[in-house]
């Protein structure tokens, strides 16, 4: 049973509008800064015109961990959790599960693509291996 995020006006696009390997990341049109977690005001130029924009979820592993401990009674373990740099949104990282056939081979620098799992009104992002997807 996943713990789901509370949706508000600032994070709604991120949690509900991801599809086709693309994720909605807030960007400031005035200074082009990507902002994640999303904010209402650009922390760089203080612009108020920030808006979510569909960005390719292609990403590169910055770091990872394999979780072995079932923190909830029905949690299946082990599974991989990565922190990945979003290639098309400099400065933005997304932490998410990485579904892979080869958990032992996970490495920093590995290329990922994004997929989504639908849970209630949420489209929960997770990563897959770009190489496995291409096969």
């Amino acid at each position: 049973m996943a713990v789901l995020p509370e949706i508000d006006m600032i994070n709604e696009a991120f949690w509900t509008k991801g599809r086709d390997g693309k994720i909605m990341i807030v960007q400031c049109p005035d200074c082009e800064r990507f902002i994640h977690p999303p904010e209402r005001i650009c922390p760089n130029c203080l612009g108020r015109n920030v808006a979510p924009r569909a960005v390719s979820g292609d990403a590169t592993i910055y770091s990872f961990t394999i979780n072995h401990q079932p923190w909830l009674p029905d949690m299946a373990v082990p599974f991989a959790l990565v922190v990945a740099d979003i290639d098309a949104a400099p400065g933005v990282r997304i932490a998410a599960r990485f579904e892979t056939d080869d958990i032992a081979e996970i490495a920093i620098g590995q290329k990922l693509i994004m997929d989504f799992e639908e849970v209630e009104d949420i489209r929960l992002p997770f990563f897959r291996s770009a190489q496995e997807a291409a096969q």
Binding site: A2, N11, S63, F64, L72, L81
Partner: peptide, 20 residues
Amino acid sequence: SWYLPMGAMSASNWAGWIAT
């Protein structure tokens, strides 16, 4: 909300990223 829904439920996961 940026960690728990993603499956990163525990600070050990977040510290695991730092350690890796």
